[in-house]
Design a protein around this nucleic acid. Structure first.
Length: 140
DNA sequence: GCCAACGTTGGC
DNA sequence: GCCAACGTTGGC
């Protein structure tokens, strides 16, 4: 299983809204960056991702799971290459992990969240995943 | 094919 | 509100 991190501004689409969609999930629309698109295309059903709130909160709020692999983004113009995956909310982190906390953790200093701060869909290593879950007091 | 101008993201 | 980083656009 691979791990990822995706970003959303919570006043546009929050983790609570994602959770409310239930097990069926929801397409992750609107990615318009080629690096982010390539990551979407690498995602497999069953992979998990952190849901990060950018701008407001600046914290990892919860965990989502990929329930459908990539297909064309219904919000893109005809002929454009953009794709979506469907994701479902899995669990809210008991303790959200803030950007500040991540920056303080030396083992997380190479996270893409820090190094590639503008990339909206990014990979997370197994070690990073484990540590962020621990910081978030998520057992799972 | 280069590069300046411009737009967007996202932290501060 | 500002600014750095970075992607895109368009003139040449």
């Amino acid at each position: 299983m691979a791990f990822w991190l995706i970003k959303s501004e919570p006043d546009v689409w929050s983790f609570d809204q994602q959770l409310a969609k239930g097990a069926k999930g929801e397409p992750w629309t609107g990615v318009r960056n080629h690096s982010a698109k390539l990551n979407l295309m690498k995602m497999k059903k069953g992979d998990r991702a952190f849901f990060y709130h950018s701008n407001i909160g600046k914290e990892i709020a919860g965990i989502i799971e990929i329930v459908r692999e990539h297909y064309p983004d219904p919000t893109a113009e005809a002929g454009e290459p953009w794709v979506v995956v469907d994701v479902r909310g899995v669990a809210k982190l008991p303790q959200p992990v803030t950007l500040e906390a991540i920056k303080k953790e030396s083992a997380l200093k190479n996270m893409a969240l820090i190094k590639l701060s503008r990339l909206s869909v990014q990979p997370v290593t197994a070690e990073e995943w484990k540590l962020v879950c621990k910081l978030g007091q998520f057992k799972g």
